[in-house]
Amino acid sequence: MEKTLNLTLKVWKQNGPREKGRFETYKVSNISVDSSFLEMMDILNEQLINEGKEPVAFDHDCREGICGMCSLYINGRPHGPDDDITTCQLHMRKFKDGETIIIEPWRSAGFPVIKDLIVDRTAFDKIIAAGGYVSVNTGGVPDANALPIPKPDADEAMDAASCIGCGACVAACKNGSAMLFVSAKVSQLALLPQGRVEAARRAKNMVARMDELGFGNCTNTGACEVECPKGISLSNISRLNREFLTAKIKD
């Protein structure tokens, strides 16, 4: 027989960026343990709509852990009580029948709340726009292996590139620092010859933008790495420090 859960949800409700927010308590029943967390949220919203109430606003898109849109702080952890997953990959089997689940938005001065559980993460886009790309002159397709890249470098670059920019690192950080995100974006390109060309400029511009946007300073606590759904390593932050400092000293 399929197991189901009856749950109490304490959800952050906030009408707008400048409005004062509050917690609302809702009850949901007969939630299948096989459903995902966001499916449970959908059931809640359907229930609210049927009751003529306003549904809870939350970010979501691909629902397969690759777009980085979902962003819920669940029971004390970004993306909830499981490791290396996004909120949309969280299953209800991680919760117990009768449990109270507290659902909050990311909390950081860099990510102001727009509505309910949705926060404004355009700061990340601004950091990317400051240099998180390679200026490519497209020409003919180059021969395979014309540019030899050592396997460890390729692997590390791929690991860094798995960052989906969800912002869980900032949400988990006691300093509201975006260093894990920026370091992943700098690393994925700095490790490869194509990205190496603009590496110094990229590190300087992205860090300058990050500071300007009011993100905090890294104190190496490592909370970001623990909560990152993609397991981005702290070693990227050390690489960013290295890239940034050498670029500045060369000036």
């Binding site: 950081s108 001065a109 006691k174 300093n175 509201g176 993100f215 905090g216 300073n217 909370a223």
Partner: peptide, 12 residues
Amino acid sequence: ARGSAQYASGKK
């Protein structure tokens, strides 16, 4: 940078 808003569910 952290802001004044605290997590009601704490940091786990």
